[in-house]
Design a protein around this nucleic acid. Structure first.
Lengths: 324, 324
DNA sequence: CGATTTCATGTTATCGTTACCACTTTGGGT
DNA sequence: ACCCAAAGTGGTAACGATAACATGAAATCG
């Protein structure tokens, strides 16, 4: 427009110069670039995307940005996407299907190149319908137990729960407790609990559950719930926490109550965040390759192919909170 | 289009129904909604924004999503923006002005309703030029020492550094050290150091600096740098860390080396993240109201007015790592 | 030296929506 | 019976870019 006039060429030529397509003489190219810079001109991406029928946007929906787990995955996604010239449009669902539905519409209205959704919630029928109609390629993250959409990259949370139980059982610990929060919404965490409890009960153990659906899944809640647990009666032999943050809070409560860890009670967290580096204690936890999940999900998004399920492995990170 | 045909009305009527504008009879409205739902129709937001010359997008540029500090601010922003129907387009600058320049262009090309940038980096001239030409309202976050753009919401990092120094000085501690990372890029952290050092030297103290510009600002780096510091010679009386994560790492190194905290060495972190809840120790730190900064920035963005600087206060969170 | 190819640029139609106004009907009010 | 407001709906022309093709000039060729 203005740029074209100022450079004495047609809008078409400006478009070509700015995108580096077509054959433009060096002189013209330099002149247009100069004028565009001087004018502080930024092409209207809305018009460009509308016209070319494709935006370089990828939609990413995660439960919460504040949760280190998902921001770790996000970093992995961006590490793949950004170098290829995509920008990511991030939305927070807070585990709420209605929220997800709203965000899916918002993102789809931007005609994205692809969509990455997080599993672990009960997607509404409307959401699925809209996704399918859009024709946009969709990848599901995180929940590997129930693959969905065009591809899935995640882990088996049920298996993770069983693995935690196995660690306890191998130490002869059978009286366990699972401490979490928001299990009503976070179906992945619920499935970890399920695996954990199943495995324990198969081996003749038992598993209490302490969870509050209204509290955040952080250090403070971990401490409060554990304190409540200890007030009820004698401490369990083993506690598995929903995440590392809650586990750290739990350890505070245990130590405050004089419960020896791991002498009296063993503790396992989940996810291997930086919180596991507690000062004196080192939390035993299951580590999930967050960055890798993100990177592989981004790759799965970019290379169209048949529906595929890509299960990543978690690792046991040995700390000092489980007895030998 | 298809919806209009299927409902037997004009595209114009569909547009009105879906946006809830204009006068449409109840019967028509219901029929159109029904058809749209059945078809899984999502309006093309690109075309809509192009036509109406306004998108409901707000651009937010922060150094890193993985850093709890900025994701805390982000939460505050979203708490204000999302209920008003805005969606946020988030970009990560990693403290790099060129990255910021690229992202600013990307966001502006989406014709956003507003832009929230994080201060603490040397913005390029081109970025400033493009921002001004765009006419989009811009708010600067975080860096309150050097207000910029249409409004600024943040804190004085210099004052925060001085406050940390004052705490040490009031305990008679004069031999201090500042431990950080990436001070070349993060000008806010550099300014905290400056305030810290100035205040100490005014009072006849001294301040060593230990920083590595290549390492991440996390627990592991905090531990490594502190271990290096202790290997060099006797421990300083006081250490101020760039953030809580590094401080926690530092405490590990100090305890591992048998340095009594706070008996021999006192420690102050910065930012009051959940990491401060270490298991036995409770880190003394300066707490910044992250959520509030975000919320106020979002409000400043929405209510146009003259350029304003909104300085928030930090608080000293007493822990057990500074001697009485 | 005419025919063909290459290079550099311009023309036109289109993407899907909305702003703005025009149009038809209906239901009073006088 | 006539007029006028309100209610409901549709037509038209943007919005700013690009895909696809068209054009003219310069270069190459047999």
């Amino acid at each position: 427009m203005t740029v074209a006039a100022a450079a004495g060429v047609s809008p078409m030529t400006v478009s070509k110069v700015l995108r580096g397509t077509g054959r433009i003489s060096l002189a013209t190219r330099q002149r247009v670039m100069q004028v565009a810079d001087d004018l502080g001109y930024v092409p209207n991406g809305l018009a460009g995307a509308l016209s070319s029928q494709s935006s370089q946007i990828v939609g990413i929906l995660i439960p919460s940005i504040g949760d280190m787990v998902y921001s770790g995955v996000l970093a992995g996604i961006n590490a793949v996407l950004v170098p290829k010239g995509f920008s990511s449009f991030i939305g927070e669902t807070f585990f709420d299907p209605e929220n997800e539905a709203r965000l899916v519409r918002t993102v789809l209205s931007l005609k994205p190149s692809g969509l990455i959704l997080t599993g672990g919630l009960e997607r509404t029928g409307a959401t699925m319908h809209v996704l399918r109609q859009s024709g946009v390629r969709c990848v599901q993250l995180w929940d590997g137990d129930r693959p969905d959409l065009d591809a899935t990259v995640g882990l088996s949370h049920r298996a993770a729960g069983r693995a935690a139980a196995d660690i306890f059982l191998s130490r002869g610990l059978r009286d366990a407790c699972y401490v979490g929060a928001q299990l009503d919404r976070d179906l992945c965490a619920a499935r970890r609990l399920e695996g954990f409890r199943q495995r324990l009960e198969e081996a003749g153990g038992r598993c209490r559950v302490l969870a509050d659906d209204a509290l955040p899944r952080d250090v403070v809640t971990g401490e409060a719930l554990t304190a409540a647990l200890l007030a009820e009666g004698p401490p369990p032999e083993a506690i598995h926490y929903l995440n590392d943050a809650m586990a750290i809070g739990g350890l505070r409560a245990l130590l405050a109550a004089g419960v020896e860890v791991p002498g009296r009670t063993s503790v396992i967290g989940f996810n291997g965040t930086s919180l596991r580096h507690a000062i004196q204690t080192r939390l035993t936890t299951l580590e999930v390759p967050l960055h890798e999940i993100g990177a592989r999900a981004a790759q799965a998004l970019l290379q169209p192919g048949e529906a595929r399920t890509d299960l990543v492995d978690f690792q046991i990170v040995a700390g000092t909170t489980v007895r030998p």
